[in-house]
Protein backbone atom coordinates (compact mmCIF):
# COMPACT_ATOMS: atom_id res chain seq x y z
CA UNK A 1 0.00 0.00 0.00
CA UNK A 2 1.52 3.29 -1.12
CA UNK A 3 0.07 6.22 0.76
CA UNK A 4 0.79 9.86 -0.05
CA UNK A 5 0.03 12.41 2.68
CA UNK A 6 -0.32 16.05 1.63
CA UNK A 7 0.82 18.42 4.40
CA UNK A 8 0.22 22.14 4.69
CA UNK A 9 1.79 24.82 6.86
CA UNK A 10 -0.57 27.39 8.33
CA UNK A 11 0.01 30.33 10.68
CA UNK A 12 -0.08 29.38 14.35
CA UNK A 13 -3.47 30.73 15.36
CA UNK A 14 -2.39 31.11 18.95
CA UNK A 15 -0.50 34.18 17.80
CA UNK A 16 -1.82 37.55 16.77
CA UNK A 17 -2.33 37.60 13.01
CA UNK A 18 -0.71 40.68 11.50
CA UNK A 19 -1.66 41.67 7.98
CA UNK A 20 0.96 42.32 5.33
CA UNK A 21 0.88 45.61 3.45
CA UNK A 22 -1.78 45.38 0.78
CA UNK A 23 -4.14 43.79 3.26
CA UNK A 24 -4.78 40.60 1.32
CA UNK A 25 -2.42 38.27 3.14
CA UNK A 26 -1.11 37.72 6.63
CA UNK A 27 2.44 38.81 7.35
CA UNK A 28 4.30 35.61 6.55
CA UNK A 29 7.69 36.96 7.49
CA UNK A 30 6.98 37.35 11.17
CA UNK A 31 4.37 34.72 11.85
CA UNK A 32 5.12 31.32 13.26
CA UNK A 33 3.92 28.52 10.99
CA UNK A 34 2.80 25.08 12.09
CA UNK A 35 1.42 21.96 10.43
CA UNK A 36 -2.34 22.07 9.82
CA UNK A 37 -3.76 20.00 12.69
CA UNK A 38 -5.99 17.94 10.40
CA UNK A 39 -2.98 17.07 8.22
CA UNK A 40 -1.34 15.79 11.39
CA UNK A 41 -4.35 13.49 11.84
CA UNK A 42 -4.00 12.35 8.21
CA UNK A 43 -0.32 11.57 8.77
CA UNK A 44 -1.12 9.57 11.90
CA UNK A 45 -3.76 7.55 10.06
CA UNK A 46 -1.30 6.86 7.23
CA UNK A 47 1.33 5.64 9.70
CA UNK A 48 -1.25 3.41 11.41
CA UNK A 49 -2.25 1.95 8.03
CA UNK A 50 1.38 1.23 7.25
CA UNK A 51 1.86 -0.47 10.61
CA UNK A 52 -1.22 -2.65 10.19
CA UNK A 53 -1.07 -3.42 6.47
CA UNK A 54 2.52 -2.68 5.43
CA UNK A 55 3.51 -0.33 2.66
CA UNK A 56 5.15 3.02 2.20
CA UNK A 57 4.19 6.50 3.36
CA UNK A 58 5.32 9.52 1.35
CA UNK A 59 4.72 12.96 2.82
CA UNK A 60 4.61 15.94 0.51
CA UNK A 61 4.60 19.64 1.38
CA UNK A 62 5.09 22.89 -0.48
CA UNK A 63 8.07 25.10 0.26
CA UNK A 64 6.16 27.04 2.92
CA UNK A 65 7.52 28.52 6.16
CA UNK A 66 8.94 25.83 8.44
CA UNK A 67 7.98 23.05 6.03
CA UNK A 68 11.34 21.35 6.64
CA UNK A 69 10.56 20.95 10.32
CA UNK A 70 7.23 19.36 9.47
CA UNK A 71 8.79 17.02 6.90
CA UNK A 72 11.62 15.93 9.22
CA UNK A 73 9.09 15.38 11.99
CA UNK A 74 7.06 13.16 9.65
CA UNK A 75 10.18 11.16 8.76
CA UNK A 76 11.01 10.83 12.44
CA UNK A 77 7.51 9.53 13.07
CA UNK A 78 7.97 6.81 10.48
CA UNK A 79 7.24 8.22 7.03
CA UNK A 80 9.45 6.64 4.36
CA UNK A 81 9.87 9.55 1.97
CA UNK A 82 9.56 13.31 2.35
CA UNK A 83 9.08 15.49 -0.71
CA UNK A 84 9.22 19.27 -0.80
CA UNK A 85 7.64 20.87 -3.84
CA UNK A 86 9.69 23.92 -4.83
CA UNK A 87 9.43 26.63 -7.45
CA UNK A 88 5.94 27.79 -6.67
CA UNK A 89 6.85 31.13 -5.14
CA UNK A 90 5.91 32.76 -1.89
CA UNK A 91 2.67 33.87 -0.33
CA UNK A 92 -0.71 32.27 0.17
CA UNK A 93 -1.32 29.41 -2.22
CA UNK A 94 -4.99 29.09 -3.13
CA UNK A 95 -6.68 25.72 -2.75
CA UNK A 96 -7.24 25.46 -6.48
CA UNK A 97 -3.59 26.07 -7.28
CA UNK A 98 -2.46 23.76 -4.53
CA UNK A 99 -4.74 21.03 -5.87
CA UNK A 100 -3.58 21.59 -9.46
CA UNK A 101 0.09 21.37 -8.49
CA UNK A 102 -0.44 18.32 -6.30
CA UNK A 103 -2.39 16.63 -9.09
CA UNK A 104 0.57 17.12 -11.43
CA UNK A 105 2.90 15.73 -8.76
CA UNK A 106 0.63 12.69 -8.36
CA UNK A 107 0.64 12.26 -12.13
CA UNK A 108 4.29 11.22 -11.84
CA UNK A 109 3.97 9.24 -8.61
CA UNK A 110 2.91 5.67 -7.87
CA UNK A 111 0.30 5.59 -5.12
CA UNK A 112 -2.85 3.84 -3.96
CA UNK A 113 -4.22 6.35 -1.52
CA UNK A 114 -3.89 10.06 -0.77
CA UNK A 115 -4.67 11.26 2.72
CA UNK A 116 -4.87 14.88 3.77
CA UNK A 117 -6.62 16.96 6.40
CA UNK A 118 -10.34 17.50 5.94
CA UNK A 119 -9.81 21.25 6.06
CA UNK A 120 -7.37 23.97 7.04
CA UNK A 121 -7.82 27.37 8.62
CA UNK A 122 -6.96 29.19 5.39
CA UNK A 123 -9.21 27.22 3.01
CA UNK A 124 -10.72 30.35 1.56
CA UNK A 125 -11.41 28.82 -1.85
CA UNK A 126 -12.33 25.32 -0.79
CA UNK A 127 -10.91 22.24 0.88
CA UNK A 128 -8.08 20.22 -0.59
CA UNK A 129 -9.59 16.69 -0.54
CA UNK A 130 -12.44 17.54 -2.93
CA UNK A 131 -10.39 19.96 -5.05
CA UNK A 132 -7.61 17.41 -5.46
CA UNK A 133 -9.96 14.46 -6.00
CA UNK A 134 -11.78 16.32 -8.76
CA UNK A 135 -8.55 17.57 -10.34
CA UNK A 136 -6.96 14.14 -10.34
CA UNK A 137 -10.17 12.39 -11.39
CA UNK A 138 -10.17 10.22 -8.26
CA UNK A 139 -13.01 9.27 -5.94
CA UNK A 140 -12.82 11.43 -2.82
CA UNK A 141 -14.45 11.43 0.59
CA UNK A 142 -14.26 14.16 3.24
CA UNK A 143 -14.78 14.15 7.01
CA UNK A 144 -13.34 10.65 7.33
CA UNK A 145 -12.89 9.29 10.84
CA UNK A 146 -11.75 5.73 10.11
CA UNK A 147 -9.93 3.99 7.26
CA UNK A 148 -9.41 0.26 6.74
CA UNK A 149 -7.86 -1.37 3.73
CA UNK A 150 -9.62 -4.22 2.00
CA UNK A 151 -7.78 -5.31 -1.15
CA UNK A 152 -8.44 -2.83 -3.97
CA UNK A 153 -10.81 -0.86 -1.74
CA UNK A 154 -10.75 1.26 1.37
CA UNK A 155 -13.52 0.96 3.91
CA UNK A 156 -14.09 4.40 5.32
CA UNK A 157 -16.35 5.98 7.91
CA UNK A 158 -17.64 9.39 6.91
CA UNK A 159 -19.26 11.66 9.48
CA UNK A 160 -22.46 13.16 8.16
CA UNK A 161 -23.05 15.53 11.09
CA UNK A 162 -24.80 15.18 14.42
CA UNK A 163 -22.93 11.96 15.10
CA UNK A 164 -24.39 10.01 12.17
CA UNK A 165 -21.74 8.04 10.30
CA UNK A 166 -21.89 6.52 6.81
CA UNK A 167 -19.83 3.39 6.12
CA UNK A 168 -18.51 3.47 2.58
CA UNK A 169 -16.37 1.34 0.30
CA UNK A 170 -14.11 3.38 -1.93
CA UNK A 171 -12.26 2.00 -4.91
CA UNK A 172 -8.53 2.81 -4.89
CA UNK A 173 -6.75 4.99 -5.76
CA UNK A 174 -8.71 7.61 -3.88
CA UNK A 175 -8.34 10.84 -1.91
CA UNK A 176 -9.59 10.93 1.69
CA UNK A 177 -10.02 14.03 3.83
CA UNK A 178 -9.21 12.93 7.36
CA UNK A 179 -10.90 14.57 10.31
CA UNK A 180 -9.64 12.26 13.03
CA UNK A 181 -7.08 9.47 13.04
CA UNK A 182 -7.76 6.25 14.95
CA UNK A 183 -5.39 7.46 17.66
CA UNK A 184 -3.93 10.77 18.77
CA UNK A 185 -0.96 11.91 16.65
CA UNK A 186 2.28 10.48 18.00
CA UNK A 187 5.10 12.53 19.43
CA UNK A 188 8.72 12.48 18.41
CA UNK A 189 11.58 12.88 20.83
CA UNK A 190 13.96 15.76 20.19
CA UNK A 191 16.89 13.36 19.92
CA UNK A 192 15.11 11.29 17.26
CA UNK A 193 14.19 14.47 15.37
CA UNK A 194 17.79 15.70 15.44
CA UNK A 195 19.08 12.36 14.24
CA UNK A 196 16.70 12.44 11.25
CA UNK A 197 17.40 16.09 10.52
CA UNK A 198 21.14 15.50 10.51
CA UNK A 199 20.72 12.63 8.07
CA UNK A 200 18.87 14.96 5.70
CA UNK A 201 16.57 13.13 3.35
CA UNK A 202 14.09 15.72 2.12
CA UNK A 203 13.77 15.34 -1.66
CA UNK A 204 13.14 18.57 -3.51
CA UNK A 205 10.92 18.36 -6.56
CA UNK A 206 10.56 21.31 -8.91
CA UNK A 207 6.92 21.82 -9.76
CA UNK A 208 5.45 23.75 -12.64
CA UNK A 209 3.40 26.74 -11.62
CA UNK A 210 0.07 27.20 -13.27
CA UNK A 211 -2.94 29.49 -12.89
CA UNK A 212 -5.77 27.32 -11.66
CA UNK A 213 -7.96 29.82 -9.92
CA UNK A 214 -10.57 31.32 -12.25
CA UNK A 215 -9.65 34.98 -12.73
CA UNK A 216 -13.18 35.96 -11.82
CA UNK A 217 -12.32 35.52 -8.15
CA UNK A 218 -10.74 38.48 -6.39
CA UNK A 219 -9.77 38.74 -2.75
CA UNK A 220 -10.34 42.39 -1.89
CA UNK A 221 -9.16 42.46 1.68
CA UNK A 222 -8.70 40.62 4.94
CA UNK A 223 -9.93 42.33 8.07
CA UNK A 224 -10.60 41.50 11.72
CA UNK A 225 -14.24 40.82 12.60
CA UNK A 226 -16.34 43.64 13.96
CA UNK A 227 -16.09 43.51 17.72
CA UNK A 228 -19.45 45.20 18.28
CA UNK A 229 -20.85 41.92 19.50
CA UNK A 230 -17.88 41.42 21.77
CA UNK A 231 -18.30 39.86 25.19
CA UNK A 232 -18.36 42.05 28.26
CA UNK A 233 -15.01 41.26 29.82
CA UNK A 234 -14.98 40.44 33.51
CA UNK A 235 -11.96 41.72 35.35
CA UNK A 236 -10.58 41.35 38.84
CA UNK A 237 -9.03 38.55 40.83
CA UNK A 238 -9.99 34.96 40.00
CA UNK A 239 -12.20 34.93 43.12
CA UNK A 240 -13.99 38.11 42.05
CA UNK A 241 -14.52 36.94 38.47
CA UNK A 242 -15.69 33.53 39.69
CA UNK A 243 -18.22 35.21 41.97
CA UNK A 244 -19.55 37.24 39.02
CA UNK A 245 -19.88 34.05 36.96
CA UNK A 246 -21.68 32.34 39.84
CA UNK A 247 -24.11 35.29 39.99
CA UNK A 248 -24.73 35.07 36.25
CA UNK A 249 -25.51 31.36 36.50
CA UNK A 250 -27.77 31.99 39.51
CA UNK A 251 -29.58 34.73 37.57
CA UNK A 252 -30.81 31.99 35.24
CA UNK A 253 -32.11 30.09 38.26
CA UNK A 254 -29.69 27.25 37.77
CA UNK A 255 -27.66 27.15 40.97
CA UNK A 256 -28.97 27.58 44.47
CA UNK A 257 -27.63 30.66 46.19
Amino acid sequence: MRVVVALKQIPDLVEELELASGGTDVDREFLKFVLNEFDDQALEEALCLKESAGGEVTVVAFDEPDADRTLYTALAKGADRAVKLVGVGEGWLSGHRRAGLLASFLGNAAFDLVLTGVQAADDLDGQLPALLGARAGLPHVSVVVRVELDGPRAKVSQELGGGTVAEEEVQLPAVLGIQTARQAPRYVSISRYREIQQAGGIEEVEIQSSADEPDTYRLRRLFPPDTAGHAEMLTGTPAEVAERIAELIRSKGLVKS
Binding site: D125, G126, Q127, P129, S142, L160, Y217
Partner: peptide
Protein backbone atom coordinates in the same frame (compact mmCIF):
# COMPACT_ATOMS: atom_id res chain seq x y z
CA UNK B 1 -20.35 23.72 4.83
CA UNK B 2 -21.84 20.38 5.82
CA UNK B 3 -20.09 17.13 4.97
CA UNK B 4 -21.84 17.14 1.60
CA UNK B 5 -20.82 20.76 1.12
CA UNK B 6 -17.18 19.89 1.81
CA UNK B 7 -17.34 16.97 -0.65
CA UNK B 8 -19.17 18.81 -3.37
CA UNK B 9 -18.38 22.54 -3.43
CA UNK B 10 -14.74 22.06 -4.37
CA UNK B 11 -15.45 19.27 -6.84
CA UNK B 12 -18.17 21.25 -8.58
CA UNK B 13 -15.96 24.32 -8.84
CA UNK B 14 -13.21 22.25 -10.46
CA UNK B 15 -15.56 20.51 -12.92
CA UNK B 16 -17.29 23.74 -13.95
CA UNK B 17 -14.21 25.95 -13.74
CA UNK B 18 -16.17 28.15 -11.37
CA UNK B 19 -14.73 30.39 -8.65
CA UNK B 20 -15.35 29.15 -5.10
CA UNK B 21 -15.55 30.84 -1.72
CA UNK B 22 -15.84 28.69 1.38
CA UNK B 23 -16.91 29.47 4.98
Amino acid sequence: TTTAGLDLSGAVSVHLRAALVSY
